[in-house]
Computed example of a mutant assay.
Amino acid sequence: MAKGTPPAAGESRPDFSKFGTVGFVLIAAALLLYGLNVFDVVDEPIGNDLLIIGGAGALFLLLANIGPLIESLKWGKDGLELNFNSAINADVQRLTAKVGELEIKVDECCGQQSAAPTSRRLTAGAPAPKLEAPHKSRPVLDPDDKNSGRFGGTDHAGGFRLSASFEGGGDWATVNLAVTADGAVADLRPGEAVEFHLHETFPTPIMRRPLRDGAAHLSFTCWGGFTVGVWIPSRGIELELNLAHAPGAPKVIREH
């Protein structure tokens, strides 16, 4: 099961329904202590207590308001781990897709890449040709991982390599994909792009990113491993990488 959707039924999700009540109670307690201190009912200094109780109340009120947007919230080894629900993640993924398409159009219109100049030569003139992705005509070998075996079966070909790094590792993980060209790849053209084919459960399973300075990048949040397929239509190059087998993959990617 995967991958761009929220965890399956039965997995824990914080209940924020009573956070507002708790927040108001804590703030009321802080105000009561403040009043007792003002009228000298309490002799001992309570400034720190007021800050702690009032701050906790404000935090509970904040969580009560943003709670419906949160999928999971816990304290992990790297600090507070907060993941927003699928609706927010879906909006972010759609926005990322639109930004990628806009960047590609800008490269095509301007006839040059926006990255800093390097020794890699950029060929001016007509945009790169676009070939049809061959995976569409290939049979699905694994119904749960439809990209597996349909993008060439290797993470490197034609001077390009697909790699992944990971952040987090609680209920969700951030995956950072990179397609990089080695020194033998030259004559990059305006508007060259990389298609990242994700699991079909993602709101936007095909994401296009511009190939700039010999590299294209894509980051997203998910849970569970699956095969990422890559198609470079201007060069007819296919790549694929099973995230569950990628070096450094966290448990939430390897075992789901």
Score class of each variant (00 low, 15 high):
Ile52His: 02
Val92Ile: 15
Gly47His: 06
Ile46Asp: 06
Ala87Ile: 14
Ile70Gly: 04
Ala90Gly: 07
Asn85Thr: 07
Ala97Lys: 08
Arg138Cys: 01
Ile104Phe: 01
Thr123Ser: 08
Asp43Arg: 09
Leu31Glu: 05
Asn37Ala: 14
Ser86Ile: 00
Asp78Ile: 04
Trp75Pro: 05
Ala124Trp: 02
Glu101Gln: 14
Ala97Trp: 04
Leu73Trp: 06
Pro139Cys: 02
Leu69Thr: 11
Ala133Asp: 15
Ala128Met: 04
Ala28Thr: 10
Glu44Trp: 06
Leu80Met: 13
Gly100Trp: 06
Val22Ala: 15
Ala90Asn: 05
Asp78Glu: 10
Ala128Phe: 04
Cys110Glu: 15
Asn65Asp: 10
Arg121Gln: 03
Leu59Met: 13
Thr96Arg: 09
Asp43Ala: 10
Ala56Trp: 14
Asn65Trp: 10
Pro143Ile: 01
Gly35Trp: 15
Thr118Glu: 06
Asp144Leu: 14
Ala58His: 01
Leu51Gln: 11
Phe24Ala: 08
Ala58Cys: 01
Leu69Lys: 11
Thr96Asn: 11
Glu132Ala: 10
Gly67Lys: 02
Pro134Val: 09
Val106Tyr: 14
Leu33Val: 15
Leu80Pro: 08
Ala56Thr: 13
Glu71Arg: 11
Leu50Val: 03
Val22Phe: 15
Gly57Met: 05
Leu73Ala: 07
Val42Thr: 12
